[in-house]
Amino acid sequence: MSGAWKAADVVGLREETTTARTIRLRLPAPVPALAGQHIDIRLTAPDGYQAVRSYSVAGATPDGFEITVEELPDGEVSPYLVRDLAVGDQLEVRGPVGGWFVWRAEDSGPVQLIGGGSGVVPLMAMARAHAAAAHPAPFRLLYSVRSPESVFYREELESLAERETFDVTYVYTRKAPDGEPAGRLDKGTLARHVLDGGSDPAVFICGATGFVEAVSGWLLDLGHAPDRIKTERYGGMGGTS
């Protein structure tokens, strides 16, 4: 039952960037996670105070799953998870939950993923599920990110992109590698890099509210059907997660 809290063991930690890390969690019993779902994490302070936050699952593992957490400057939970949590610690976990922003291997059509910053996390879960299933549908990821140093999962994305069915495009908003332009994603760049609306792709967009609002609006302008676009926004979490 998704509503019950379970104790999960922290069995692995991996730095993604200087402000984000991936936490591998092992659960007492296997819990199926759909690609794109999230979990709730509950922390309890020594005085009994509790805080709960939601994090997207980044990928399934044989005995649990991974999440990737970005430290938010004014955050309450994320600095603890990124800075203090250690392998061997336990966390209380509820879920995974959410049945909308998910990709299922039964879906046969092409998929366009569009992520802004740490919004790439649930999209990575979909990309991993796509690869794990050796799925024939074309998958594309458009990843808008501050700088090359801010990219999550770089090596794995490169290796996924060696497959014919997966393609990744980076848009660097502040600082790009030498010889590449830097600047915010705009409608023209989006139109050049996403699957055409005519191929009727399922579109998943995740990022800050402003990013999701802009991108989904442009996609409608470009002829994508509103009922093919699914969105998830974290921006509103207001730096408080």
Binding site: E76, G235, T240
Partner: peptide, 16 residues
């Protein structure tokens, strides 16, 4: 299980 926020988060399943 709730915490206070001063801003106004947006959560929507699809395009506005």
């Amino acid at each position: 299980g709730q915490y206070l926020t001063e801003d106004f988060p947006v959560l929507s399943a699809g395009p506005t």
